[in-house]
């Protein structure tokens, strides 16, 4: 088996990129490429692309809006179209919706406040590249830290997402007002996942939890098997 080739994209204002890179290295055994937003191209032959959390461009205009129009995102959108797995966490999720890779938008939390705490999630679909290491209905604990995580999309799209098994994770309780308590959604092909909670913050026992580890393991195993 060849080494797992992943990349973490850093935008100006990203602040979870090192955590993401560290998690990918710890779980896969290979350090990811670090890619800057102004780069024109991604490294060749990537197995996995991660868009990290943070406050890209200071959340100017709308969260993720300017990052989603940055140079490197054209390459990320093209890679996603070829089937390369893309994970967007927190601000990365906002970048994915703003770029059109995922449906919907992330609004200000319904309770207005920034929410920073552990959240219980229910694994809704364990038949995906990112969730095969969990079982359907399993409750896991992953921290959230966001101000704009209130997932919004029209009712018809919500029904379609649910019908197609594209709701990967749901909050076990209302955290931010998200439609149908959705915490993570997939694109139609199943190779793009956006989620507000931070799996990269719970991959080793020193983190106080390891429930995020299976997400990275799932993706790595799935890709090695494929």
């Amino acid at each position: 088996m060849s080494a797992f080739r992943s990349a973490v994209i850093t935008f100006p204002g990203s602040n979870c990129d090192r955590d993401m890179a560290d998690a990918l290295e710890k779980v896969s055994g290979t350090a990811p490429h670090r890619v800057w937003h102004g780069d024109a191209d991604l490294p060749e032959g990537l197995d996995f692309i991660a868009l990290p959390g943070g406050f890209s461009y200071g959340d100017y205009l709308r969260c993720g809006a300017i990052a989603s129009r940055s140079r490197i995102m054209q390459a990320v959108i093209a890679a996603a179209g070829r089937g390369v797995p893309v994970l967007g966490v927190c601000n990365g999720f906002q970048v994915l919706t703003e770029s059109g890779l995922l449906p919907g938008a992330l609004l200000r939390n319904a309770g207005i406040r920034f929410v920073c705490r552990d959240a219980k999630l229910i694994v809704e679909n364990s038949q995906t590249l990112f969730t095969a290491g969990y079982s359907a209905g399993q409750t896991i604990t992953i921290p959230v830290a966001h101000h704009d995580g209130n997932y919004f999309v029209d009712e018809a799209t919500l029904d379609r997402l649910e019908g197609e098994g594209r709701v990967a994770f749901r909050y076990a309780e209302d955290v931010n007002g998200s439609a149908r308590q959705i915490a993570g959604v997939l694109n139609q092909a199943g190779n793009v996942l956006g989620m507000m909670p931070h799996p990269e913050r719970v991959v080793e026992s020193a983190h106080g939890g390891t429930d995020g580890r299976a997400l990275f393991e799932s993706a790595i195993r799935g890709l090695v098997a494929a």
């Binding site: 205009l61 809006a65 300017i66 129009r69 919706t97 703003e98 919907g104 938008a105 609004l107 919004f152």
Partner: peptide, 9 residues
């Protein structure tokens, strides 16, 4: 359409 507004919302 491309930047100033997000026409989803």
């Amino acid at each position: 359409r491309k930047l100033l507004a997000n026409t989803v919302i």
